[in-house]
Amino acid sequence: MKPVKVLLAAAAALALAGTAAAQEGTLKKIKDTGVVKIGHRDASIPFSYLDDKQRPIGYGVDICLKIVDAIKAELKMPKLKVEFVPVTSQTRIPILTGGNIDIECGSTTNSVERQKQVAFAPTYFMTGTKIIVKKSSKIKGYDDLKGKTVVFTAGTTNERAMKAYNDEKKLGINFIPSKDHAESFLAVETGRAAAFPMDDILLYSLRASAKKPADYVIVGEFLSDDPYGIMMRKGDEAFKKLVDKTVMGLYKSGQINKIYAKWFQSKIPPKNINLGFPMSAALKELIKNPNDKGVEACGKMKC
């Protein structure tokens, strides 16, 4: 039996080597299945969220669709199908590593810790943790949260930054977890929680889409820096190269400005709100000199 086994193994290795030379990793998978699977969020406005027909749209989704175009060109498969899979802050990494999505286009902070599991495309937005509170609560900063209830979206870097701050300053905050940003914001709106720590841009969009935007204020210094990036599987150089090239191409050609203006400086569905959020100096710098550097998970506190 032995020689046969060796032969078989050799043949298998040869066969593998043959395909590997042509295409490997995610690209091969996409080619074989004819489908590219995109992970999207339900309520990360305006990056990745559901419009009034419950279709995923947003700044991140638009950039991902550009990447899909690049994949189509690379594989010479103009009829490539796109499948959208909903993910949450908690499920996005296991679903990606498990192969149920190929890229995630949402509002995921590129952190050093996550880089042990996944790879990130060049940063496409720069934000940081603040808190949203009711104006009537008179909360002016993190230290006013002593003994109060704070809701967080499970699985976010903001959760970690807030908890690290709470530990360091011994605020005795009562934390309640929630599944997604909309649910967290509702906890503040209904009075269940005093504050919700989140990336400030998402807080601004949640406030803009609230029933009474004027009732809420976003307060605090940045508790963390959160560079957003498109996530993909780790260790797949060919795919990452294609994604990076596409994103940086958008930066170089200036197309990014158009996409940015569409989502941050014009009316967006479902409620036709204009966020009126001009591009920050930090993002302009990142577009000039793109990078995929991650940040520490606990924000400005130490873990």
């Binding site: 490997e24 990793g25 995610t26 091969k28 998978k29 074989d32 299945t33 699977k37 899979v85 909903p86 499920t91 296991p94 679903i95 590593t97 498990g98 192969g99 149920n100 999505i101 599987r233 260790g235 797949d236």
Partner: peptide, 25 residues
């Protein structure tokens, strides 16, 4: 939902095996 896809990858030895999708999971 979280572990079977990973287990299937280990078994098949293909790190880029296609996931079976959320519905089938």
């Amino acid at each position: 939902y979280f572990l079977v896809p990973l287990a299937m990858k280990k078994i098949s030895g293909d790190a880029y095996a296609t996931g079976i999708g959320p519905f089938y999971s």
